[in-house]
Design a protein around this nucleic acid. Structure first.
Lengths: 224, 224
DNA sequence: GCAAAAGTGTTTAACATACACCCATGG
DNA sequence: CCATGGGTGTATGTTAAACACTTTTGC
């Protein structure tokens, strides 16, 4: 028998959400600090049980809203984790999602339920509760893959941005340098963005033209 | 309240498995005919509840073995379906898998639990129970996509096969013709197969050289 | 005038595509 | 000898990759 008293008699369902953003030129993940045993003071990805009359995605959205205060962000089902002993309190099967939130307007909300909340660079995560390290690693892989053949990067950028901003986000997530001229050629040829007519001034160098995405809906597009 | 008496008081977990094979030059799906209400005499994809101490994939494998008699086939988690009212008997969340089984050695097993079992061309499916039409449609999409960037097609072919056999499987699943010479060039350049030295004789035309896969483990490879 | 990022084309190599005929066999 | 699928090469177009300098601004 387990050393920890089981809380759940039956198999229960949870959702967990890996929330990504770009902050300080790094890909960061939102983590919450747990209060309760058996992972007291451990960091984890936001999540919780699915309500009986609640669709899965709505459950994920609820945790997302609670922790990040954000609605209408990119949210995608990632994978369902079902190892029997992933939670010491009982059989908890978790449907993991990942979300992409823009770097602006980040207002973290903590709640009484948790001891804290914060952003962590995905490459320097603390040890995580449950199998959450595995979940985050898979989410990162999926994100990297999807950047290559979809347009979902729009969900990490503000309404207006420079092409250098855009390129930087690709470089940060893929963790490799891209050629500026080839990059621009590709982005233009795919008709992903258009000029806003504005430019960003006020810095000690040439102003950057600002662009916006022509479409902010997920689409498959061969980028890389 | 629902018209049908609920069987499950709490949310329960199930797995469903979309089993694909190539048969009669068509992509076919294994379906079972249900005995019980509320889908009496309806066709459905094999599946069932997850046991309390059973990992998800093992549950899928169990249903796979029960219906197809096959072990050690390609099996991959597809998506988790969680609409609240997808099952009239209560809240059943289903983790869907898809499996690829070789066209040889197909020995269908029926069981007392079901009224029948059979293969159906994926393009001519009968109406299915629950949301299984949606599940099969998604599985087919995933399979088509994965053919393009992985080597999983090996799991649909027998140990020895001709290059025309291989090409035919691609053409059937992708539902488009491929150029024979370009196809061979690609397959050879990727070092996916090697000659067995044998050839297939006994037909009224030139014998075909037989090949085998160099690796029969899943790998990412740009094929299309 | 200097530091810093913005912006801009061309050349080359690799790959994808299109395409048609001869070969070997069983009957 | 005929019908059938098996097997093979080249030429062209498209796309990816490599590469460096000029421009514009704030200070």
């Amino acid at each position: 028998m387990a050393k920890v008293e089981k809380k759940f008699k039956f198999t229960v369902l949870a959702t967990d959400v890996v929330i990504f953003t770009i902050k300080d030129d790094k890909l960061q993940v939102l983590l919450i600090k747990m209060k309760k045993e058996p992972f007291q003071a451990c960091w984890a990805v936001p999540g919780g049980l699915v309500n009986p009359e609640e669709p899965l995605e709505q459950s994920a959205q609820r945790h997302l809203l609670l922790k990040s205060g954000l609605k209408n962000v990119y949210l995608e089902q990632l994978y369902t984790f079902g190892k029997v002993k992933r939670d010491p309190l009982g059989r908890v099967v978790s449907v993991a999602y990942f979300a992409l939130v823009p770097s602006e307007n980040l207002a973290l909300k903590t709640s009484q339920e948790y001891a804290g909340v914060g952003w962590f660079p995905v490459n320097k995560l603390p040890p995580l509760a449950y199998d959450h390290s595995e979940i985050v690693a898979l989410a990162k892989e999926r994100l990297q893959a999807k950047l290559g053949y979809t347009n979902i990067i729009y969900s990490l950028l503000p309404k207006h941005f420079s092409l250098s901003d855009l390129q930087a986000v690709y470089e940060i997530i893929l963790d490799k340098k891209l050629d500026k001229r080839n990059f621009r050629k590709k982005i233009f040829s795919l008709k992903l963005v258009k000029k806003t007519g504005e430019e960003r001034r006020g810095r000690a160098f040439r102003p950057a033209e600002l662009y916006e995405f022509i479409s902010r809906r997920p689409a498959v597009v061969q980028i890389l």
